[in-house]
Simulated scan of single mutants.
Amino acid sequence: MNIIYNDYKKGMDDTGESAVSFNVFRNSFKSFNLAFHKPKKDKCGLCESIKNKTASGDMNATDRESYLTYMNEKYATYAEYKEDTKETKENASLIVASFDLQRVLTTPHSDSTLMYYARKYAFYNLTVYENRNGRGTCYVWGECDGRKGSTEISTCVSLWLQDIDKELGEHQQLDIVLYCDNCPGQNKNRCMFSMLYHNCQKLPGVRSIQLKFLLTGHTYMGAHTVHSTIATFIKKRTIMAPSQWPFVIEMARTNPSPLLVRKLEYSDFEDWESLQDNYFPKTLDCEGNRIRWSALREIKFTKGYKCAEIWYSSYTKDISRTDMLKRRSFDQIQVYRAYSKKRLISEAKFKDLMNLCKKMVIPKNFHEEYSSLPHSVQEHDHLDESDEEDGTQE
C-alpha cells in the first residue's frame, strides 16, 4: 500500500495537484473492494512458460502439442484423485491419504528483530492426511534427531502404515492409496519404494499399496490444508523452544478433530536407504526398457507379488512392470537404525542460540534445553535435501 501511495503522490506532484493523506487514500482504495494478489507457494513451470509465450506471441505448434498433452495429464490426475476420495468414503477396505513435509519450523519462532539474523534450530513436521475422515497425523522431530531426507520421510510413512495395520480387525485387509508431490529427494526415490514394498509384504492387514504423484504446481492434497492451518495458528504466536512445537501443532486444529502428534527421536528412524539395492537392483523393467524414475506417475505393490506395477501416465494408463528382490529373499532382509546417536549442529548456530539465551530473548526456563544441544566446530551449516519438486517431463 505504501508503494502505491508513493506512486500516487508522485503523480499528483507532477501535475501540480495536492495529494490526499495516506489514511484517506487507503480508505478510498478499500472502498473499491480490491486486494493484493498473493502468489501460491507452488507454480507450474510449464503453465507459466506457456502463459508468457502466448502473451509475447512466441507459441508454436510444438508448444501447443506439449501443453495439450500436459493438460490431459493434469485433468486425468485430478479426476483420479477425486474418484479415489469418493471411493474411500464408500469402500471400507480402501484408505486414501496424502503426505507432505511442512516448511521448516525455525526455533525460536517470533517477530522479534533480535532473532532475525540469528541462526535458528530447525524443526520438521511430516503430515499424513486421511481423506475419508480428515484425520491428520503429524510426525515431528528436530534437526539433532534427523534430517529431512528420504530415510526420515520413509520412516514416518512406515510408522503410519504400521499404526493403520494395528487398528484393523482380525482377518481385515486394506488397499492403501497414497498421494504426494514429485520431490525426488524425499518422495520419488527407491528408498521410499523399498519401504512401501517391505511393509506391503510384512503387514498382515495390508493387501496393496499404491503411490501416486501429483503434477508439479498442481498439487491439491489434504496434507496442505493441515499445514495451512498450522501456519495460520502460529502466525502471531511465539514459540521459544523445540519442545513446544508438538503441543502447539496439536492445538492448531479442532475441526474435524485435533491433530495427532508423534514426536520422533533419532533412534526411531530406520535406514531404508540401505535397502534400496536389495529391492530395486535393476534399472530395466521386465520388458527390458529403462525405468524412467523421474517420469513415474504411479507405482503399486501387491502382497505376495514380486513385481512392482508402474504407470508413466494417469491419462493413457500404460502399465509397465519391474522385478523386485533380486539379491536376497524377503526373510533375510533386516531394517536397521539410521542413527546411533544424535546429530550435531554447527558451533556457529549453537553460539547464536546461546547468545539469545544470554540476552534473555529466550526465557530462562528454556536455556537448559538449548545448552544441551550437541554441537561441534567440525560441523558446518549446510543445506538439507531440497524439498523442491521435480518438474522433469520425460
Rank of each mutant, 00 (worst) to 15 (best):
Y5K: 07
D7K: 12
K9E: 12
K10D: 15
D13Y: 05
G16I: 04
E17L: 08
V24P: 03
F25Q: 09
F29N: 04
K30A: 07
L34Y: 10
P39A: 04
K41P: 01
C44S: 14
E48G: 03
S49T: 13
S49D: 07
G57S: 08
T62D: 06
E65M: 14
L68F: 07
Y81K: 01
Y81G: 00
K82H: 11
D84A: 14
D84Y: 04
K89P: 00
N91C: 12
L94K: 11
I95T: 15
I95H: 14
T106N: 09
A118V: 01
A118Q: 00
A122F: 13
A122S: 15
F123G: 06
N131D: 12
T137K: 07
C138D: 02
D145M: 09
S150H: 12
E152T: 06
L159H: 12
L159G: 00
L161C: 13
H171C: 07
D175E: 12
C180V: 07
P184D: 03
N187K: 10
R190Y: 14
M192C: 08
S194K: 00
Q201H: 15
V206H: 05
Q210S: 10
L214Y: 01
T219I: 05
H224S: 15
V226R: 01
S228L: 09
T229W: 07
A231C: 04
T232Q: 12
F247A: 15
R253Q: 14
T254N: 15
N255T: 11
L259N: 07
D271L: 09
S274R: 14
F280W: 11
L284K: 15
C286E: 08
C286P: 03
R290N: 10
T302S: 12
K303T: 07
A308L: 02
A308R: 01
Y312N: 10
S313L: 15
I319H: 05
R321A: 02
R321S: 07
L325W: 05
D331N: 11
Q334L: 15
Q334P: 00
V335H: 03
Y336M: 11
Y339N: 13
R343A: 11
S346Q: 05
D352I: 00
L356P: 01
P363H: 11
E368D: 15
E368M: 13
E369T: 09
P374H: 09
E379I: 01
D381H: 05
D387Y: 02
G391K: 08
T392D: 04
Q393P: 08
